[in-house]
Design a binder for these strands. Structure first.
Lengths: 114, 114
DNA sequence: TTTTTATACATCGAACTTCTATGTATATTT
DNA sequence: AAATATACATAGAAGTTCGATGTATAAAAA
């Protein structure tokens, strides 16, 4: 079982995070676990990777945060999708559909690879 | 008609270039036109964007180049896929399939976006 | 009891990318 | 003769991911 390329990770990070937050409010550490689980271990964000992305998304006002003490007793920074974030997610889905169309068009006419 | 996001452009550039070269040998300027056409104008590489990518792919020995004077009389640097490049393209296709699976899993269970 | 592991967040610097701008040069069209 | 299209190249700015490092607390293990 292989890991994904850095480029694809990069392209998918924001839509994946927004998508997760569109279902449930969550916090950094949990998001890392969720993505790992959903992707069967194929995407494992380092914390040093994810936190700056969350900060960026908050700066761009696509997500909002608030502190909360979890059942564990440790403080967590919860994030939720903002109205702008919902719009952004819709746009990301459209983009994804477009690129898939382009790529599948290219790959449908099979070259001689074998 | 909108343009694609920078991130998706980034993730798709290499698979698209390799895919085009797997069908026909081509040169930088023509590749830019091809991609523009295939994508209905949604992907327009600047020359300052594409050429460094081609150089990188050549450095990594995924493509090979040779100079040729075209019918136009201008010299062109033609590129073709190397054996490594063919393998890489296969790998890129697999990666793309994996990420699509992950994303569609996330998006199948529809959140309340509307 | 003490140590380790898991949880939880943050930031820095290295390495790499894309993009815009700029430069060179030739052929074709106006 | 000038403008446009063709064709390639590189440098610098801006942005990104990632590994390393740091802080702190709770739970589990030794």
């Amino acid at each position: 079982m292989e890991k994904l390329s850095k480029e694809l990770i990069g392209a998918s990070t924001i839509p994946i995070i927004l998508s997760i937050l569109s279902k449930n409010e969550s916090y950094g550490y949990e998001i890392i676990q969720s993505v790992k689980e959903i992707s069967d271990g194929k995407i494992e964000y380092g914390d040093g990777t994810l936190y700056p992305v969350l900060h960026k998304l908050e700066r761009k006002e696509l997500i909002e945060s608030y502190w909360k003490i979890g059942e564990s007793g440790k403080k967590r920074k919860y994030y939720k999708l903002s109205p702008n974030g919902k719009k952004e997610l819709i746009s990301e889905k459209e983009n994804w559909a477009i690129i898939n169309q382009i790529i599948s068009k290219l790959w449908k006419i099979e070259p001689n690879l074998t």
